[in-house]
């Protein structure tokens, strides 16, 4: 099978500090991968670099996404190619309504894919369907992007957008942080509904809890900018139980 995402020896730094130090990862279509690791190991940096945040400088390595050199194109083009990032801290954008924003995004993505744009009616039907998936209040979809949303609403809005844009690959950056069990269940339900043999997920999380709801195919441990251990879903339980110290000790040997 041809991999969807393959990361090779990726190195990146922010403001002169090296964060990713030669990271390797391959994700095939339909797979769900989870990346875990202690604070400061580079998890969120990885998400930002993949999405194309220019605050991070890529200093080495390569990323192939469905046959395209990902590092060669900007954030908007990456999104159009089907890469989605659910932000850890979704930004508030006053004055830009959720609906207009999604319509603008979908229009550009469809143009890029040379698909006929949705009619207003089709678009609204889709909004209705997808917002129900994450139990997002219809009123919120008419408000400015994330403005005045609670933490849980912001995260559900991220999953709602993912459902609207239907990416090939979604990266969820600590989407579980700050969520109560109900919100977590709703978010997971949205993600699980989106799972398919073509679509892949990369879950970035600090806690094993999320993985009870979204069961991964593989679990990786990120430590000091490298993936130091990979295994089946049981690895997550082991990490939960033993913490990260044993990994550090293993590394030291």
């Amino acid at each position: 099978m041809k991999p969807l995402l393959s990361i090779n020896n990726l190195q990146a730094e922010v403001e002169g500090h090296e964060i990713l130090k030669g990271l390797n990862l391959t994700i095939n279509p339909g797979e769900v991968h989870a990346i875990m690791g202690p604070n400061g190991s580079g998890k969120s940096t990885l998400a930002s670099v993949l999405a194309g945040n220019e605050d991070y400088d890529v200093t080495g390595g390569s990323v192939d996404f469905d046959g395209i050199d990902l590092l060669d194109i900007d954030a908007s083009e990456r999104a159009k190619e089907g890469l989605f990032l659910a932000f850890q801290y979704p930004v508030e954008i006053p004055g830009v309504s959720n609906i207009n924003f999604l319509r603008a995004a979908l229009k550009e993505i469809h143009e890029h894919k040379e698909i006929d744009p949705l009619t207003a009616k089709e678009f609204l039907a889709k909004v209705k369907e997808k917002s129900a998936l994450v139990e997002l209040d219809g009123k919120l979809t008419n408000r400015s992007v994330n403005e005045g949303f609670s933490g849980g609403e912001k995260k559900r809005n991220e999953i709602f957008q993912m459902a609207m844009l239907e990416p090939k690959m979604a990266i969820l950056d600590e989407t579980d942080s700050g969520l109560d069990i109900d919100a977590l269940r709703i978010v997971a339900q949205g993600v699980n509904a989106m799972r398919s043999p073509e679509r892949s997920f990369l879950l970035i999380t600090h806690y094993q809890r999320l993985l009870d709801y979204i069961v991964p195919d593989f679990v990786h441990v990120l430590y000091k900018g490298q993936i130091v251990k990979s295994g089946p879903k049981e690895l997550a339980l082991e990490l939960e139980e033993k913490g990260y110290d044993w990994i550090k000790e293993e590394m030291a040997l």
């Binding site: 194309g52 954030a75 908007s76 999104a79 932000f87 830009v96 924003f101 603008a104 979908l106």
Partner: peptide, 18 residues
């Protein structure tokens, strides 16, 4: 700007929207 771009909106359109 980055958030809008990460949803597939081109940089120019993102700035115009803002």
């Amino acid at each position: 700007v980055f958030y809008l771009m990460a949803r597939g909106i081109s940089e120019q359109n993102a700035r115009e929207l803002l």
